Amino acid sequence: MKYITGIHALNLRCSLETCGDWHQSGIQWTRPTIRDSAESVFGDFGIEKNSNVPENPGTHWVADHIRALLDLLAEQSFGYAQGMKNDFICNDAYTPLIFDKVQLLSRVSYWPEICEFMGKEYGLQWLNFLQQRNISGRLENAS
């Protein structure tokens, strides 16, 4: 399924109780970031219908805020995802779900960078999660 994601999706309302990013006027909307869910380890998780996409009339499939951030991590766009916990999600109730989904990326070659990013965002919560699941934050886990 083709859907809008990344910084564009973070700037749209979704069904989650999250903050998102509200800089809509500073975003180029004529060509939003489109991905295909069939090409992602996350499948159709977190994709919902949205009819309020600026400069794009009609109804579109759009990543919710969690999925948009997961896609940014999967694309190694850590700069755009910076502020994930406190600026975009703003709701600790979603932390276990986010950790479970991020773990799906543990076999990519840039897993250590993802772990470093998550450690900066979530601190000891992330390190405890890795320990509890016996997941390494180093490359040898990403075979």
Rank of each mutant, 00 (worst) to 15 (best):
G26E: 13
P54Y: 06
E39A: 11
L105H: 01
F129C: 07
T30R: 15
Y94D: 09
S25W: 01
A93G: 00
K101Q: 15
I27Y: 03
F99N: 00
H60V: 03
R13V: 07
G119Q: 03
G119F: 02
D64C: 11
C19Q: 08
N86Y: 10
Q131N: 14
V108L: 13
Q76N: 11
L10V: 01
A81T: 12
E75I: 01
L104R: 12
K101Y: 10
V108H: 10
R67S: 07
Q131A: 15
S109A: 13
S40V: 02
L124F: 05
F117V: 13
V108F: 11
H23N: 13
W29Q: 05
N141I: 02
E17I: 06
N86S: 15
L97C: 00
L12V: 12
E17D: 12
Q76D: 08
F129L: 05
I7N: 09
S40P: 05
G58D: 11
Y3S: 01
A81K: 06
G79P: 00
L73V: 14
E17P: 00
K120V: 14
H60G: 06
W29I: 10
L105R: 08
D71T: 13
S37L: 05
Y94N: 12
H65V: 07
W29P: 10
L69I: 13
C115P: 06
Q125S: 13
A142W: 01
D64E: 07
I47Q: 04
W126Q: 01
C19S: 14
D100Y: 01
R133P: 03
F129N: 03
E55N: 14
Q82N: 13
K2G: 00
L139T: 09
M118T: 06
N91V: 12
Q132G: 05
P96W: 08
L139Q: 06
L10F: 10
G123Q: 11
Q24V: 04
N91G: 12
G79L: 08
F78N: 07
K101G: 00
Q131S: 15
A63I: 06
S106Y: 08
S109F: 05
K101I: 00
R133W: 01
W111Y: 09
A142V: 04
C90K: 15
W126I: 04
G83W: 09
P32T: 12
L69M: 14
I47E: 01
G6E: 04
N50A: 03
M84G: 09
D21A: 14
I98E: 06
G6Y: 02
E121M: 04
I7R: 12
G119S: 14
Q82M: 07
G43E: 08
L10G: 09
D87M: 11
N11G: 11
P54W: 02
M118C: 15
H60Y: 06
N141V: 08
S109H: 10
G20D: 05
N141T: 09
E140I: 07
N134E: 13
Q103I: 00
L104Q: 15
E121C: 12
N86V: 09
G137I: 03
I47P: 03
P32A: 06
L72H: 07
P32F: 09
D92P: 03
G26H: 13
L104D: 10
R31L: 13
W111F: 03
D21V: 00
R133L: 00
Q28P: 00
N86M: 11
R133G: 03
P54E: 05
N50G: 10
R35C: 11
D100L: 02
Y94R: 11
T5L: 04
S143I: 05
Q132R: 15
